[in-house]
Structure formats: structure tokens, C-alpha cells
Computed example of a mutant assay.
Amino acid sequence: MAEVTMPRLSDTMSEGTVGRWLKQLGEPVAVGEIIAEIETDKATMELESFDAGKLQQIVVPAGQTVPIGTVIAYIGEGEVVATPPPAPTAPTVATATPRIAPSTASHNGVSHERVKASPLARQIAKQKGIDLHTISGSGPGGRVVKQDVEQYVAPAEQQVPSSGAPMSRMRQAIARTMSASKPGIPHMYLTMEIAMDAAVALREQIRTTGVKVSLNDMVVKAAALALRTVPALNASYQNDANGQPAILSHTAINIGVAVALTDGLVAPVVRDADSKPLSVVSSEIHTMAHRAREGKIKQHELEGATFQVTSLGMYGISEFGSIITPPQAASLAVAAVRKVPVVRHDQIVIGQVMNVTLSADHRVVDGAIGAAYLKELKRLLEAPLSIIV
């Protein structure tokens, strides 16, 4: 029989949790078929099978956390072995969060048969300690979706104060990364105002062709092109083979785009963003963001970023500074486009402006380099045809 082991889905991952099994004992499994959902320190990932056969044995039940490399199931032919009960373990922060596991038993008259629910709905319900059986689904076939769980949670959260529940694995990972970044990385902040009238007009022209492109998509593309002109920011501060501090310059320009989730954020990566057409950049951003919110993002789609763009414009934020994600050397914070009085040709008119703030690792670059980058970004966005030709 072929072993199915807990995979290493990220460089920081040392253990993983089986969120749920999507295949039952004895069911046929094809190569490449999704057999389980694995919760990592970054997101909930789908586990694909590398072998064909039948699911012969489930070694690690849903809800249990084990180190990477641990055998969690067997696939092959022959007699099906019943799933063993979970081994008793000492309570930890990672396993203290209430989990919702499918069962055919009942408790207090409530059926515990498997509920049809989206991965994101299950993730939110698990974090909140909610039994999905108590929620009416509004999706196809009565499927419980994200909105159903949020509507169920909202009244309770308005009435009941927080009980100090344990942090989720994602929140713990964010805490570790941000603690390493601040005060570990000496941040330098530079802010520039960019006139967005031409970019807004161009976006509307593009939309008339049936292509949906957002202003944030245009900023991501411009941010990548600006790194071509100022490549010093497309770098990482790290130790070399001899353990000495060094600056690693990257040849590929891979932009991480921050996506807010219910319990944190992830940053799907648009690889070679400088060389892809704006329409492709836009499509990749929106496709990966959708999968991230549904809990279906792939681990490789979250790795390899050399620069990050974070936008809070949709919340009306006029200016903010983002925290650099190691080992990147810089991050761009994008605020809202606002209509304000501006002076043009000695006349006061209404213009559309946007503030961007560059956070840069002062060990890698100085202020002049950061200023040169923002100047190039401003040039590209104020003459936006240059980002689509």
C-alpha cells in the first residue's frame, strides 16, 4: 500500500492539522484527486493523492495535528482497516480551538451526519466553535456558505463578550512573522501623492471592452514595472553560505498581493508580474483571491514573493504604512483614491489623488533609492498607457 504523509506545504511549516477527509474508507481514489483538507500556519490547503486505488486506512482522524512526514493514511488494494481513535494528547494552543468533525452519532437529539458546507464556511464555524448542524444553508442543495455562518455569528458576538479563545494557526503564524519583522527590520517609510485621474479614466475605457480591471490591479502592474527601473528594492537581506549578512538580488519580479480573510490575511503571488499583460495580472489576482477566501489556495501560490502590495483603499483609508514580510525588503501600502481640490495650471480644480507609502528595509536601501522608486511609480500611474503597452 502507498503511504499518504503529512506534506511540507511551506518553509515555516513543522506540523499540520487534518481539517477533514473528503474521501471515506473504501472509496476509490484517482491520481491528482483531492482526498483531504490540511490546515497549515498560513491557510487551509487541499491534499492531492499521488497514487490510485482505494482509501484503505485513515491513520490520523480529522482534527488531529501531527508533524510533517507522519503517515496519515494508506491507499491501495485489499482489506479496508477501520480508522483508529485519535491518540490522547496534551492540550496545546494549536489544538484547543473547537473543531467540527463529521460523525453519525447524535447528542442531545441533534444529528451529526455530515453537513454540506463550503470550506470557508467550515473554517469560520470551526474558529467560532459553531455546530454546522444548527445553521440553515442558503447555497445550492442547502449548502452552508460563508454568509450563513456570518449571519449566525453576528447576533451572538454583539451580545457576548470575547472569552479569550485560543489563537488560530493562521493568527499564530501572522504573530510570529510580524514579531520577526517589527522591531527586527529597521523600517523606513516614504509617502507620495499620485494623481489618479488618467488611471481612473483608462480603467473605465478598459471596462467598456468587457475586461474587468481594478485600480489595484493597475497599481500592482505599475509596482512591478517600477522594480525594473529600481531593482535595488527587489531584494532580500539574509545570511550567505558563511553565515555573514548579505543582500540577495532577485531576477524575477514576483508581487505578493495581500488578501484579507476572516482570521488574518494571505498574499497570493503574481509571478513575473512585470512581464505579464495587465489583463493577465488582473485575472490571476482575482482568481487567487477568490480561492484564498474559499480556503482553496495552493501553497505554491503563496510562496516566492519578492515585493508586496497591500491596499486598504476599499475601506476609505487615506494613508497608512504596511509592515514588511521577511525576507522581502519592501512593501507598498495603497490608500483610497480621493477627490480633493488640487492646483493645476495655477487653477484650483477637483482632482483624484491617491497616497502610497513605501516601507523599505533600511539595511538594504537608503531613502534616495526609495524616493526614486516612488517617483517611477508615480510616473507610470500618471501616464497609465505605459503599463498596458
Rank of each mutant, 00 (worst) to 15 (best):
Q205L: 02
V280C: 06
I185F: 08
K221R: 14
R99N: 02
S181H: 00
M354C: 14
A36F: 08
A252L: 11
P245W: 05
A289R: 12
M167W: 00
I130M: 04
E27S: 03
P91Q: 12
V80N: 05
V281K: 08
L377A: 01
P384A: 03
M178E: 05
A101L: 08
S331H: 05
G69W: 12
V71I: 11
K182L: 08
K42W: 07
A125K: 01
P268C: 04
R338D: 09
A94V: 09
V4K: 07
V230L: 08
P384E: 09
T12V: 09
V334N: 05
T262E: 15
P84W: 14
A52D: 02
D11E: 06
A117W: 00
L248I: 06
E294P: 15
N242H: 03
K54I: 14
S111I: 00
Q158T: 11
D41F: 10
S275C: 04
E319M: 02
I35V: 15
P61S: 02
K375R: 12
I58A: 04
R169T: 11
P7C: 07
A330I: 04
D11P: 13
I185E: 02
I323L: 10
A258D: 04
A305R: 04
V266W: 02
N355C: 12
D272T: 11
E15D: 06
V230Q: 12
A117K: 00
V18L: 05
D240S: 06
F320I: 12
T95R: 15
T306L: 04
S49W: 00
I317A: 03
R291E: 12
K54Y: 13
E33T: 03
A252M: 15
T134C: 06
P91S: 14
E284F: 00
G142A: 07
A30L: 14
L190A: 14
S249E: 15
K212E: 01
Q205K: 13
H345C: 13
S103L: 13
G141P: 08
V213K: 02
A383M: 01
E27T: 06
G184A: 02
G76D: 03
G141Q: 09
T92D: 00
P85G: 02
A121Q: 00
Q57W: 07
R99M: 13
K298S: 12
P88G: 01
P161M: 07
Q127H: 13
R363K: 05
G184L: 03
G210T: 04
M192Q: 15
S386P: 03
K182W: 05
A360N: 01
N234V: 08
A125Q: 11
I247M: 06
G63L: 05
I285N: 01
L261G: 01
P140A: 13
L302I: 03
S163M: 11
A289Y: 07
H300V: 13
A305D: 05
E294C: 14
A121I: 05
I68Q: 07
M192A: 14
G184C: 02
T97C: 00
